[in-house]
Amino acid sequence: MPRLSPDARHTVRVTVNGRALEGEAEPRMLLTDFLRHKLGLTGTHVGCEHGVCGACTIQIDGAPARACLTLAVQADGADIRTVEGLAPEPGRLSILQEAFRRHHALQCGFCTAGILMSLNWYLARTPDPSEVELREFLSGHICRCTGYVPIVAAALDAAQRLRETGEQR
């Protein structure tokens, strides 16, 4: 039974966007800080550190989750996806990302990574959501810029294009 003392740093190993990565973390280090400041993945943003705003949403073991409500040591061994892993290749955007750009579904972009990670998961399992379902699902995120109208439009548009192309991600 591993017992990690508070002052020492411990190696945390995770798979992020398909790559095995590791970094040092004290037991109390939040996964947000670990991803951003230890692994250099600053695309995941910190908005409230108490699980309400949704900006830090990532995928942990295949489901959307708040990185700020998770300790890095809890995630040891986990399979993580972040916004950095969404685009198919540098210079190209995914269908969902393209829809966001087309619909002006972001302004400052600070909440966007979390919303993309949630929608990426949701649209894969709910290919044809209604607007009401989408709005309910997205209520786990706060966007202060857009009023949500273009986000919902982009998600519906992306869902349709994903259905047409059969692309998963």
């Binding site: 039974m1 591993p2 017992r3 990690l4 003392s5 508070p6 037991p27 300790l71 040591v73 040891d76």
Partner: peptide
């Protein structure tokens, strides 16, 4: 968080 031991 304040420091703590972590036991898995």
């Amino acid at each position: 968080p304040a420091p703590f031991d972590y036991v898995r």
